[in-house]
Design a binder for these strands. Structure first.
Length: 426
RNA sequence: GGAGAGGUGACAGAGUGGUCGAUUGUGCUUGACUCGAAAUCAAGUGUACCUCCGGGUACCGGGGGUUCGAAUCCCUCCCUCUCCGCCA
């Protein structure tokens, strides 16, 4: 969430950001309501604080009087304090209600878009920032999509997943399972080489953690919940990993913090099902390696570009044709200030599949989770958080299988040979 | 799951109803001493919000209560540790 302070000081920038997200004038009125509510909150706090100061003062006097054995005077004061006390109860209730109202309004405001984010309404309006199509595949005439290849080579099985769990929970087997594990290992090794610290986090998180990265209250429906224990299955490693530094004040010399984690990810995805979400294109459980950055605000956009280069290199090593989209205002996620999506070409489906999303959240997450650092002057500031997939397995596997199919079998890219132990799926 | 102990500032650890946002030690920062370091000495060292920039308010695991007044008493929830049970 944004800070009221930011909205107050930078109102025009915030309003322009909302316009870029295609908010109507009517919706944008929330900005003024926030400022008005905050004014009322401040007034209420002042009033309450003054009253509390008075009663505190009198309580002290009573203490002194009691010590001096002047009980009657103390009794007189007590009745006056009791009256003040009743008043504070009323003010306190009003103050708390205003804080809740203000938070409610703030939760409804998305992050302010970076000035470089293009205007636009839908995915159609995203800008292609870069494309790498050196290895654009030419497929044999009888090429088939990955779900057919999976059947042919017994790589994964959806029906068995349905039997165990339900739709969208694939069972990987044989060379399919090995390929999965090889990719995980490959991505982790690359991340560690690039300087990320590997984390193995819990896959279930509590409410505070889910709130820290913004899954609650906004995206509650996206997560599987274990209601009995009040825990949520993580939709991405971003959630537990970023929350590692929740409520921390980090010395500036310890920045940046760069972490990576492999986890399964669980998504309920209430959305539509159909041909375009067949196979591994969209599943409820998939494996992903995530990279998470905690950065100094001065460097975050430079680092954002570095992250793009890092993810690009991974895809190049896997010999997958990809493009990078700079998301337009209408398509950029609620919490993000600027997002690039990576899409790989799945040659048999003849579709681009999203395999990574690299975002700069600026202080949107850190404000919510009180993630701060102490700068060189000893001042406390919110840190910037960034994260990206590096990479999401299911769709990478889909593209790998489709693009590399040959009459003899499915070719494995060279970078993976030492991990799979085989060069072809046969 | 059963029994007991306990949750206080970066850490250790006092404080069991009043002037306690909190003794002290360690750590850290600055200064003195020193050629320099160690040791020693001195000073400083929580966060958030509000502010007429003097200061004010809140926070001692979370929430609620008693009281003029709560870190301290009561209720409740959470967590940690020890022992027992169960278990990969």
């Amino acid at each position: 969430m944004l800070q009221v302070k930011t909205i107050r000081e930078d109102k025009n920038r915030i309003i322009n950001g909302l316009r870029k997200r295609n908010w109507t004038a009517q919706q944008i009125k929330v900005v003024d309501r926030i400022l008005e509510t905050d004014d009322r909150r401040r007034a209420a706090q002042k009033e309450l604080d003054d009253l509390l100061a008075e009663s505190k003062n009198m309580a002290k006097q009573i203490g002194q009087l009691m010590g001096q054995g002047k009980a009657p005077e103390a009794e007189a004061l007590k009745t006056r304090v009791a009256a003040i006390k009743d008043q504070t109860r009323v003010l306190e209730a009003r103050f708390e209600a205003l804080k809740i109202e203000l938070d409610g309004l703030l939760y409804a405001v998305p992050n302010c878009l970076h000035k470089s984010v293009p205007k636009g309404k839908t995915a159609e309006d995203n800008k292609i920032a870069r494309a790498w199509t050196k290895s654009f595949p030419i497929l044999p005439a009888d090429a088939v999509p990955h779900w057919d290849l999976a059947k042919k080579y017994k790589l994964f099985d959806f029906e068995l997943g349905v039997k165990l769990t339900g739709a969208g929970f694939p069972v990987y087997r044989g060379q399919g399972a090995k390929l999965q594990r090889a990719l995980i290992q490959f991505f982790l090794d690359e991340a560690i080489k690039a300087g990320y610290e590997e984390i193995i986090p819990p896959l279930l998180v509590n409410e505070d953690t889910a709130r820290g990265t913004g899954q609650l209250p906004d995206k509650e429906a996206q997560m599987y919940a274990c209601e009995r224990d009040n825990l949520y299955l993580i939709p991405t490693a971003e959630v537990p990993v970023t929350n590692l530094v929740r409520d921390e004040i980090i010395p500036e010399k310890n920045l940046p913090i760069r972490m990576t984690a492999y986890t399964p990810c669980f998504r309920r995805e209430a959305g539509a099902w159909g041909a375009h979400v067949r196979g591994l294109n969209r599943v409820h459980q998939f494996d992903k390696i995530e990279i998470v950055h905690i950065e100094h605000p001065d460097r975050s956009y430079q680092v954002h570009q570095q992250m793009l280069r890092y993810v690009s290199r991974l895809l190049q090593k896997l010999e997958l044709p990809y493009r990078i989209l700079l998301l337009c205002g209408g398509d950029t996620g609620f919490a993000s200030a600027k997002t690039y999506d990576f899409e790989v070409w799945a040659a048999a489906q003849e579709r681009w599949l999203e395999v990574s999303s690299v975002s700069n959240f600026e202080t949107f997450q850190s404000n919510r989770m009180q993630l701060r650092f102490r700068d060189a002057d000893g001042k406390i500031q919110l840190a910037h958080t960034l994260n990206g997939s590096a990479l999401a397995l299911a769709r990478i596997v889909a593209a790998l299988l489709e693009n590399n199919q040959t009459p003899e079998g499915i070719r494995i890219p060279k970078a993976l040979h030492k991990y799979t132990g085989f060069k072809m799926i046969i």
